[in-house]
């Protein structure tokens, strides 16, 4: 049977991708940020999964206002890095896992979550920046990736509770897949940031760190936090953090297993307009 071995959480700021692509990672501005991911790259190399289920949001790239799916699962064989207006990032094509993706779609929809099944889409920085942070600049990504896009652009976005429960359904789906695959679930986006209006540049480090604390120790309680608190305290784009609850809901302790092991935690301000948070949680073997 397939199983979820770990979850990874990270911000996905586009400027981080640009810093990697333009070889600026050693510059004084960026050096402290990338230092926080050195352990993570080694950890991923030593704990390589068979599949990454990567929760992210599309930033008006694959989905315009013509169609706005709340939850979209990528079931294609591959996904190209998108041209977001600056030209496509020079990163490898993302290879999907159509069999597991289709299985998850079937299981999770039967569990009452209305997923949109996407057989053709390009993937933007929301998906590729986390891969770059965790893998560096390889010729190919280390394993297949199932893109899972969540609408956090147009309100109302899904609640934290719904995301958390979706994570629980995701765990059930993975554990009912026959092949013995090791699957990691990544939750991306956030932390506090606001990209618009006179309040642009908002950072709330205290709130972000409390979020990390609760994500580790009290995820069910954290899932009850309403949208308005994210927006007021962490900025209009800080709402992206609800996506981390999908990954957290997929961990074993939520279904009665032992608490996950915190293998890495990192927080840094700023990356462009944004606070960067990062966490790696391992399920007990």
């Amino acid at each position: 049977m397939a199983r979820i071995t770990a979850s990874v959480y990270t911000s996905h700021v586009p400027a981080i991708g640009a810093a990697i692509d333009l070889s600026k990672t050693a510059e004084p501005y960026w050096q402290p940020l990338f230092k926080g991911y050195e352990f993570s790259k080694k950890w991923l190399a030593a704990n390589r999964p068979d599949v990454i289920f990567l929760v992210y949001n599309d930033h008006a790239t694959a989905f315009s206002l013509d169609m706005i799916p709340t939850f979209a699962i990528g079931t294609a064989a591959q996904f190209e890095p998108a041209d977001e207006g600056w030209g496509p990032r020079p990163v490898p094509t993302v290879i999907g896992h159509p069999e597991l993706a289709a299985h998850i779609a079937q299981s999770v929809i039967q569990d009452d979550f209305d997923l949109t099944i996407v057989n053709r889409m390009d993937v933007d920085h929301g998906l590729t920046v986390p891969l770059s942070l965790m893998c560096g600049q390889p010729q190919a990504w280390p394993c297949p990736v199932i893109p899972f896009a969540v609408n956090v652009v147009q309100y109302p976005v899904p609640s934290g509770r719904r995301c958390f429960n979706l994570g629980r359904a995701l765990r059930k789906a993975v554990e009912s897949y026959d092949e013995p695959l090791k699957v990691q679930v990544w939750g991306t986006g956030g932390m506090s940031h606001q990209l618009q209006g006179p309040r642009a540049g908002l950072i709330n480090a205290a709130w972000d760190n409390a979020f990390l604390d609760r994500l580790i120790a009290d995820p069910a309680g954290l899932a009850e936090v309403p949208h308005i608190e994210y927006v007021r305290e962490a900025g209009s784009e800080g709402i992206e953090l609800v996506m981390w609850l999908i990954a957290r809901g997929a961990m074993s302790d939520v279904a009665g297993g032992p608490a996950p092991r915190v293998v890495h935690r990192f927080f840094h301000v700023p990356a462009s307009n944004t606070a960067v948070g990062h966490l790696i949680l391992e399920n007990a073997q």
Binding site: Y155, P156, R199, V231, S236
Partner: peptide, 11 residues
Amino acid sequence: YLDIPGTTIFD
């Protein structure tokens, strides 16, 4: 969310 200063929520 209408009482947050300098912020327009895209609803």
